[in-house]
């Protein structure tokens, strides 16, 4: 290259290096940043539910016996509707508001069962036991069974389902 075209600041090679690096990183950024958004998009939208679920009349639930109530909630994931199943143990005691436990074990989210013989909730996954008040008796769970917030409307029982 004739010397009169030579730039005093940098030689051709370093100029090309800079252009290559900057165009390359520009393309990577223009595609890369949207790609992150693209991936995490489902995690950003509104998730979960916030509903009062009717469990019907209190008379359906006997005293001093945790009784399982199952219900389904329809959720839309992307374009697909699916029905999620939930379970709640209703425990009524004479003269007190009912307590409603979630049937999800606080350890690793297995479903617990009521063992009437021993008067305990039993989680079959890692052999955990909770007493009738939801307190941990033995096993790995870090905290007692979760309770739903409740509302009484006459004799109608409602629980507050919040998720996400």
């Amino acid at each position: 290259m004739p010397s009169k075209y030579r730039s005093p600041v940098m030689d051709r090679r370093s100029f090309v290096k800079i252009v290559t690096a900057s165009l390359g990183s520009m393309m990577a950024a223009i595609v890369g940043l949207p790609v992150i958004q693209y991936f995490i998009s489902p995690a950003l939208g509104k998730t979960g539910s916030d509903d009062w679920i009717s469990l019907g009349s209190l008379d359906n639930f006997p005293f001093d016996l945790p009784t399982l109530f199952n219900f389904n909630i329809t959720q839309v994931n992307g374009w697909e509707r699916s029905s999620m199943s939930y379970g709640a143990f209703v425990l009524r005691k004479e003269g007190q508001d009912p307590i409603v436990f979630s049937d999800v074990c606080t350890h690793l989210s297995c479903r617990v069962n009521w063992d009437e013989e021993n008067k305990e909730f039993h989680c079959p996954c890692h052999n955990a036991f909770f007493d009738a008040n939801g307190e941990v008796v033995s096993g790995p769970p870090p905290r007692p069974l979760d309770q739903y917030e409740i509302r009484l409307d006459g004799d109608q029982l409602f629980i507050h389902l919040t998720e996400g």
Binding site: P34, V35, Q37, Y38, S41, P42, G78, W79
Partner: peptide
């Protein structure tokens, strides 16, 4: 869903 429900899905 990619075109309307995912961020930058239209771009990809």
């Amino acid at each position: 869903f990619i075109m309307t429900g995912v961020q930058f899905g239209w771009l990809i």
